[in-house]
């Protein structure tokens, strides 16, 4: 097997008495969409933050393209080729949508012309031409999400970490987002996605991993994973699994 794009090796994070993530290992292959699911408080966002450099893992290592990135700062990790979106997207005010996307472009180039034309490409890609010159703070919640995605894409990532991209979206918006994520993958970007909405995860992911109380409890194709008794137990409790057995 070829080397995975991202290898997370026994990472842990303890906040005081709370072990948010415990010796968790997983990997993202090149070109794949990996879904990360788990009940509330399972440590998904903490794991994300450890990959993206917002938190440093207490143990183990995070290896991207064969190089350890553990302990590196978020801006260095961005430059290494990992982009991310947040649960709450806050556009940069006093800048248009297009200019917001340009902010990401400066990470790769100092040439304004190149950055501007790249931003136009991203605007087209996201189908946001109509709002491109609008102040980003005037966008609807869903357009804000798309814009955040666009900013991350402008940094030309090889791996994109996406945190709950369809939270609060209408069904048609969710469908649009699913198509968009697939389109991003088709451009050669690998994706690690955290999501609560199951049908989005089932639709998108090539593979799903499940975190529960900081432990990795399942890893496999989406349909196998959702029928895994351990996963059901984590989501619905012991009783539910016994009843349905």
């Amino acid at each position: 097997m070829t080397q995975p794009l991202l290898k997370v090796d026994r990472i842990s994070k303890r906040f005081g008495g709370n072990q948010a993530v415990k010796e968790t290992s997983f990997h993202v292959n090149k070109g794949e969409i990996l879904g990360l699911i788990g009940p509330n408080g399972a440590g998904k966002t903490t794991a994300f933050n450890m990959i993206a450099g917002y938190l440093e893992s207490d143990t183990g290592d995070v290896v991207f393209e064969g190089v350890s990135i553990k302990g590196r700062k978020p801006w260095d990790i961005c430059k290494a080729g990992i982009g991310r979106t947040f649960q709450l997207s806050k556009p940069f005010g006093d800048l248009s949508v297009r200019e917001n996307i340009m902010v990401g472009g400066f990470a790769r180039s100092a040439d304004r012309k190149r950055i501007a034309s790249r931003a136009d490409e991203v605007v087209d890609f996201l189908d946001m031409k109509d709002v491109a010159e609008m102040d980003a703070l005037d966008l609807t919640a869903f357009d804000r999400r798309k814009l955040e995605l666009g900013r991350a894409l402008a940094t030309e990532p090889k791996l994109l970490l996406m945190d709950e991209v369809v939270a609060g979206a209408t069904p048609s918006e969710a469908t649009e987002m699913v198509e968009l994520v697939k389109k991003i993958r088709d451009t050669g970007v690998s994706i690690l996605i955290v999501e609560h909405v199951m049908h989005v995860i089932m639709n998108l992911s090539d593979r799903v991993i499940v975190l529960d109380f900081g432990n990795l409890i399942a890893d496999g194709n989406p349909h196998e994973v959702v029928n895994d008794p351990d996963v059901m137990k984590a989501y619905f409790g012991e009783k539910y699994v016994q009843q349905s057995a």
Binding site: A52, G53, Y54, K73, P74, W75, C78, K79, G83, R84, T85, F86, S89, K90, P91, F92, G93, D94, L95, V103, G104, F106, A107, E148, R151, A152, A154, T155
Partner: peptide, 16 residues
């Protein structure tokens, strides 16, 4: 302006 708008978001775009 990015730092003013969202410091964490700015960091994710390669800004120190």
């Amino acid at each position: 302006k990015a730092i003013r708008g969202d410091r964490d978001g700015a960091e994710a775009l390669g800004i120190n």
